[in-house]
């Protein structure tokens, strides 16, 4: 079957022959490897995307289910140059190996779009589903605290 949807603002088409995840289709068919494949069970958040306005784990979305939906991946966040979230992470050294970074960018962009001035607790809750195996949480959270202060 052919699935047509809006991907990062552009019409996209995927050929689906089995019940694969949206993550697999993004990475293997649509050449968008920003969303990472790690746990395949919704635990790690490294595959986070925005589906019809809500952040979800793309590994838990069946690709066949996104027909007529709108998907935004990390590649579709921002335009030229760094977004405020990306700049905050860059300036605060909130990236170590980088594997969790795309998922965190997607989730933090969603957080700041909804709440430009989150508290530390709100930042931590928003990131509860994003695991950093470098355990670099301190720098990640500090970068967003700083961003929250700047935008308040």
């Amino acid at each position: 079957m052919i699935v047509e949807f809006l991907l990062n603002g552009e019409p996209a088409t995927a050929r689906i022959v089995s019940p694969v995840s949206l993550l697999d289709v993004l990475r293997d068919q649509l050449e968008l490897p920003g969303s990472k494949n790690a746990c395949e069970q919704g635990e790690c958040g490294s595959c986070s995307v925005v589906l019809d306005g809500e952040i979800v784990c793309s590994c838990l979305v069946m690709a066949a289910d996104v027909g007529d939906s709108e998907v935004v991946t990390v590649e579709g966040i921002g335009g030229d140059g760094l977004t405020p979230v990306q700049r905050a992470m860059h300036h605060s050294g909130a990236v170590q190996c980088g594997f969790c970074t795309p998922g965190i960018v997607v989730v933090a962009a969603d957080l700041f779009a909804r709440n430009p001035n989150p508290t530390t607790l709100e930042i931590k809750e928003a990131l509860a589903g994003n695991i950093c195996r470098c355990t670099g949480y301190g720098a990640i959270i500090r970068s967003f605290e700083k961003l929250a202060r700047e935008t308040s």
């Binding site: 089995s18 019940p19 694969v20 995840s21 395949e40 069970q41 919704g42 590994c59 838990l60 979305v61 069946m62 066949a64 289910d65 007529d68």
Partner: peptide, 27 residues
């Protein structure tokens, strides 16, 4: 039936299930 996928897709990803006939309930 497929709703949020948070249980079914884990089984699919881990190759425990391979449903070839699915009804998406999201809409």
């Amino acid at each position: 039936p497929l709703a949020g996928g948070t249980d079914l897709m884990v089984e699919v990803n881990f190759r425990h299930r391979r449903p070839e006939h699915v009804v998406g309930l999201r809409k």
